[in-house]
């Protein structure tokens, strides 16, 4: 079998583990895509109800409080506290499998001051006790959004008072997490 045929067979089998570049999950629902679009211009935008004013997340088609269908994306404060924080040592997705191969992947649930609960990647390097991977419940954090390399906005949590005022500062944190570059497997196809 020629090299070309071998490669074609591999592609047909479509094994992500053989791909040269692996990226985070790209799939989103229509309101998930709206979240990305609304977050391009600001550090954090969340859905607000035009009737009762409730802020909500995850994005929905209607207001979870009053069921009003008229929602607007508005800039929101990313301040909140950690509900629970863990590191993942196992993943179902090739991108994270490769990242976890280098170091466990930290994630947390965070309760924002605007009373929504978000999942977020944790920028562990911004916390004092970097030695301790699991950041204690109640720790004050700030959450902002940034595009990952599958071109979706994802949320990133940093220690409160970490400077994230400029796009460059936020990008540097996302880049350090490894979210902005695909995970590369040098022997891949």
């Amino acid at each position: 079998m020629s090299k070309w045929q071998t490669m074609r067979k591999r592609l047909k089998l479509n094994r992500p583990s053989r791909r040269r570049y692996a990226r985070p999950p790209r799939q989103r629902t229509p309101v998930g895509m709206d979240f990305t679009a609304a977050n391009l211009a600001v550090p954090l935008a969340l859905q607000c109800c035009t009737d009762c004013g409730a802020v909500q997340y995850p994005p929905r088609e209607v207001c979870a409080n009053c069921l009003c269908g008229s929602l607007k994306w508005r800039p929101a404060s990313g301040n909140g506290r950690v509900l629970a924080s863990v590191t993942l040592h196992h993943s179902l997705w090739e991108f994270f499998k490769r990242r976890i191969g280098a170091a466990p992947w930290p994630v947390a649930t965070i309760r924002l001051d605007c009373e929504v609960t978000v999942f977020a990647h944790v920028a562990a390097q911004t916390f004092d006790n970097t030695a301790r991977r699991d950041i204690a419940a109640g720790t004050a954090v700030t959450v902002f959004s940034h595009s990952d390399c599958s071109r979706n906005a994802v949320l990133i949590a940093v220690a409160a008072n970490t400077p994230i005022g400029t796009r460059a500062q936020r990008s540097a944190i996302a880049e350090q997490l490894g979210l902005t570059q695909p995970a590369e497997f040098t022997g891949g196809i």
């Binding site: 985070p24 999950p25 989103r28 629902t29 309101v31 998930g32 979240f35 997340y57 995850p58 994005p59 993942l88 993943s91 179902l92 997705w93 991108f95 994270f96 992947w105 994630v107 978000v118 999942f119 977020a120 990647h121 990952d148 979706n152 994802v154 949320l155």
Partner: peptide
């Protein structure tokens, strides 16, 4: 939208 992308 909001949980699988975080580490899958």
């Amino acid at each position: 939208d909001a949980s699988f992308p975080y580490g899958a």
